[in-house]
């Protein structure tokens, strides 16, 4: 039938979009970030609130997964105690590449107000962190903003994960480097 034949040259052009592999892959990666439900402490409640009705994380393509094997992002929401630290590292190791880490809340960033014997003074001592999210506890909007910042970050990255500079666990002077990732 003639009416079904579309003249691409005169209407909207050819149904072809030109892009680079990087952009295409990152478009997919950044728009379906599935975080691991890793609620550690108070921030986990705000993480749940951001997944619940008012803040509705799902509209950003962010769906919480209970298994590290299915997750792309680890949101470390809350205080990481020393007893728990090895499990955090193990869960991080179980996640498949590409993976990103959001450290949510002051406790996860630096130990926060819990400057005590039992608290890991910043999860970046054991896990490379992409986004540090300050606040005690950060509001759900803040977590959404962090997620959007992470999306921006991913869109700037190369699709080939080996090319990306990942944070490595070096000393602050940075003389000795060791790839622990």
């Amino acid at each position: 039938m003639a009416q079904h034949q579309v003249n691409y040259a005169s209407t909207a052009g050819l149904p072809i979009a030109l892009t680079s592999v990087d952009k295409l892959v990152n478009w997919g990666r950044s728009n379906s970030l599935w975080p691991l439900t890793y609620g550690l402490a108070c921030c986990a409640i705000e993480m749940m609130a951001s997944g619940a009705s008012r803040y509705d994380f799902d509209r950003m393509g962010t769906i919480f997964r209970a298994s590290p094997r299915q997750a792309d992002v680890m949101i470390l929401a809350g205080t990481l105690s020393k007893k728990h630290s090895e499990f955090a590292r193990r869960l991080y190791d179980q996640m498949t590449e590409p993976k990103w880490v959001i450290s949510m809340g002051s406790c996860a960033n630096t130990g926060g107000m819990f400057n005590t014997y039992a608290t890991v003074q910043g999860v970046d001592r054991i896990i490379p962190v992409d986004i540090y999210l300050p606040g005690c506890a950060p509001r759900p909007e803040t977590l959404q903003y962090a997620m959007m910042m992470l999306q921006k970050k991913i869109r700037r990255e190369s699709a080939d994960m080996k090319k990306n500079t990942k944070q490595d666990l070096t000393t602050q002077t940075g003389k000795k480097r060791a790839r622990l990732i």
Binding site: G78, H84, F114
Partner: peptide, 11 residues
């Protein structure tokens, strides 16, 4: 238990 021990009583 103890995975969220933060030493609050010590603080």
């Amino acid at each position: 238990i103890g995975y969220l021990h933060r030493g609050i009583e010590k603080m």
